[in-house]
């Protein structure tokens, strides 16, 4: 039995959680995280199933981004475990987590500002193909035609075809978000974590992003989305978890969440539901 399985089953056994959910890809188990006495995350349990789009919603300061940071190794939890596809992510470095098949799209665009749009997308593709380190000082970057073709297709998918040779620093914030999305998509991750992927986009671009994410879903990619825009959440999510004050207060289908009184009280507000 692997360490991850041991952690998972021990914790599940102690706390009476289901450890046999079919097709479970991501299992967040009793995660705690405090910052200077402030409980950012408390007893957080979450399961994400293969191929689903799982939205995490909650008011500002609910702990959504902290939870994503715990998943990608940016923040070490005080307690609890994150298990992805049988591997414990807790304690792993961000590059190891990415190599296991978890990619992240950041809330604030994190791109390579000095590189072109094409180079920005080719770098993650090389990482996927060559692993975390490959000493190849005599392999020409310009000779990577297969990777370049694939990158061009993904860049066209996110609508940046006309800006392919521009440096990332010259893109607008919305375009940087698209570029980030392309950087995540080119890796064909098993799990894509999206932190407010449509923030800073105009409505028609938001709708286009929704279409794109739906299309990805058809390819079977599992996604976790943090989003404030309820239009995006209810357009994409198969299941929704609601975080408030660092705790999961509700989980279920979009319909169940819409009708959940706790959610109405904590987040959505009567008039929106």
């Amino acid at each position: 039995m692997s360490v991850a399985e041991t952690i998972r089953d021990d914790v599940a056994g102690e706390r009476g959680f289901q450890s046999d959910i079919p097709d479970r890809v991501l299992h967040i188990d009793d995660v705690h995280k405090s910052f200077a006495g402030l409980h950012a995350l408390s007893n957080v349990d979450l399961d994400v199933r293969q191929g689903e789009t799982h939205a995490i919603i909650g008011p500002n300061g609910a702990g959504k981004s902290t939870l994503l940071n715990v998943c990608v190794g940016r923040i070490e939890p005080d307690r609890g475990a994150v298990v992805f596809d049988g591997d414990a992510l807790t304690g792993k470095s961000p590059h190891e987590i990415n190599q296991l098949g978890v990619a992240r799209v950041f809330q604030t665009p994190e791109v390579f500002l000095d590189l072109s749009v094409l180079e920005n997308v080719m770098v993650p593709a090389l990482s996927r193909r060559d692993g975390h380190f490959k000493l190849n000082p005599f392999t020409a970057f310009s000779g990577e035609t297969e990777i370049r073709d694939e990158a061009e297709a993904v860049i066209a998918d996110v609508g940046l075809k006309n800006r392919i040779h521009m440096t990332a620093s010259s893109l607008s914030r919305g375009d940087k978000r698209r570029l980030e999305l392309a950087m995540g998509l080119i890796q064909h991750p098993k799990l894509l974590l999206l932190d407010e992927p449509t923030a800073g986009m105009a409505r028609h671009d938001t709708n286009a992003t929704i279409d794109l994410l739906r299309k990805i879903k058809e390819r079977g990619m599992t996604k976790v989305i943090i989003e404030h825009d309820m239009h995006v959440v209810f357009s994409l999510a198969d299941r929704i978890s609601v975080l408030a004050g660092g705790r999961i207060i509700a989980q279920g289908s979009p319909e169940e969440i819409k009708n959940n009184p706790k959610v109405k009280e904590a987040y959505l507000g009567e008039e929106q539901v």
Binding site: H95, F106, F112, L115, L126, H132, K134, N136, T139
Partner: peptide
């Protein structure tokens, strides 16, 4: 002009992002 050189340029540009891209810098 190589893949290795491109990774070095990416380190200069945004080392943190490169880590989240799966590269051990």
């Amino acid at each position: 002009r190589s893949n290795f050189g491109m990774m070095l340029k990416a380190i200069k540009s945004n080392q943190n992002r490169l880590n989240y891209t799966g590269i051990h810098t």
